[in-house]
Design a protein around this nucleic acid. Sequence first.
DNA 1: GCCAACGTTGGC
DNA 2: GCCAACGTTGGC
Length: 137
Amino acid sequence: MKYWLFKSEPSDWSWDDQVARGAAGEEWSGVRNNQARNAMREMTAGDLGFFYHSQKDRAIVGIVEVIAPAHPDSTADDDRWLCVDIRAVEPLVRPVTLASVKAEPALAGMALVRNPRLSVQPVAPEEWRRIRTMGGL
DNA sequence: GCCAACGTTGGC
DNA sequence: GCCAACGTTGGC
């Protein structure tokens, strides 16, 4: 079981959009970055991830589950890009803001803090537990 | 709206 | 293969 973080602009694809897809989930398509692609390649069905809103919100708002491992991204014009399928599991009771992540020394190593532009990134188990707790779960 | 950080492109 | 120029992302 591994943990991840998926970043999205809510005006583009929001947590509410994700929830609306229900158990069928949705392809996490459109990733055009090698590091993010490599992260998705390591995912297996059953892995869990945080759903993060960038831009105006800047907060982790929910938990998602990987329901299909990496496969070619049909929205790409060549075959080197991949996507996984994810479904919404549950929202955080309280969103965990980027500011509160940055304020927590134990989370200073997260890619969210160190490399804000990486849209799909791994999360360490201890980071996962801490953010879940901060989010009221 | 601005700008820093990063990735990609293309000339050499 | 290097590196300058450019485009994009995302925090502020």
